[in-house]
Amino acid sequence: MEAVIQRVEKQIQDILAANPEHFLVEIKVKPTNNIKVFIDGDNGIGIDDLVKYNRALYKELEEAALFPEGDFSLEVSSAGLGEPLKMHRQYVKNLNRFVEVTQLEGQKTEGQLTAVDETGIVVEETVGKGKKAEVVKHTIAFSDIKSTQIQIKF
């Protein structure tokens, strides 16, 4: 499966090269030859772009005869809010949004993502309520992060 993932990754990267604001997040291939490609954009990604990428990649996979029996399915979608952040560009894109960060040792931090650099992130957490509320800044290295989820606040 690793060879399939590498081949699909090269093909989708070539397709995405025409639009540098869009980027590959992840590729998953199931044993049933179900290929799932997750794409994101610095300013989001529209359904029209996803359809265009799906058609182009499907055509290339057919022509490459990666699956000689032609027995594969392809899904190209956005990373989605329910998916954890996986790439540095996703952190930058989601600056000032509320996140929940789970660290490797299990500690969870909820707050606003206020800074991102090459080594980690800063999350500002409001502790307490009213006049006694204070903002605590947590600097978390990428190497200490198990997962980061966007939190929807209403």
Rank of each mutant, 00 (worst) to 15 (best):
Q112H: 06
G80V: 06
E63C: 01
K131F: 11
L50D: 08
A141V: 00
L113A: 01
T109G: 00
K52A: 09
L16G: 10
Q6Y: 06
V122L: 04
R7A: 14
K36L: 14
L113P: 08
I27A: 05
A133G: 06
Q103W: 02
K108C: 05
Q151M: 13
A3K: 15
D117A: 10
A133P: 03
L81Y: 03
K131G: 03
E26A: 12
E125A: 02
T102N: 01
E9V: 01
T114L: 11
I35L: 03
E69Q: 12
V101M: 04
K86M: 05
T148Q: 02
A64I: 08
L85C: 04
N19L: 07
G41S: 14
Q149S: 15
K137T: 12
N43K: 15
E63A: 10
D144Y: 00
D14F: 03
K59D: 13
K131R: 14
I35A: 06
S78W: 14
S73D: 06
G130Y: 11
G106W: 01
E63R: 12
K36M: 12
K86P: 02
E21M: 10
L24K: 07
P68E: 13
V101G: 05
K129A: 08
I45Q: 09
E2H: 12
I12F: 06
Q112F: 02
E21I: 08
E134V: 14
F72C: 11
V92P: 03
N34P: 02
F98S: 11
F142I: 03
S143G: 10
E21C: 05
V123W: 11
N54P: 00
K131S: 09
F38L: 08
N54Y: 03
F38E: 03
A115Y: 10
E125Y: 00
Y53M: 10
D49F: 02
L16T: 02
P31V: 08
I35C: 08
F67K: 07
I45D: 06
A56M: 12
G80L: 05
K59R: 14
F98H: 09
L74A: 10
F23C: 09
E75W: 00
V122T: 11
M87D: 04
S147V: 09
E118I: 06
Y58R: 15
G111E: 13
P20E: 13
R89L: 09
L74E: 02
E134C: 01
I140R: 02
L113E: 05
N34F: 11
L113Q: 07
Q11V: 06
R55C: 08
E75C: 09
S73E: 09
I152V: 07
Q6N: 14
Y58H: 15
E134D: 02
K146A: 13
K153N: 04
Q112C: 10
K137I: 03
F154A: 07
L104N: 09
L74K: 13
T148W: 01
P31M: 06
Q90P: 04
E9K: 13
D48F: 14
F154I: 14
A79H: 00
F72D: 13
D117W: 14
Y58F: 15
E60M: 07
N96Q: 12
F154Y: 10
D42L: 07
A56P: 07
I47F: 10
V122I: 11
T109A: 00
F72V: 13
T102L: 05
V116Y: 08
A141R: 11
E125N: 03
G82M: 02
D71P: 06
V25I: 04
K108I: 04
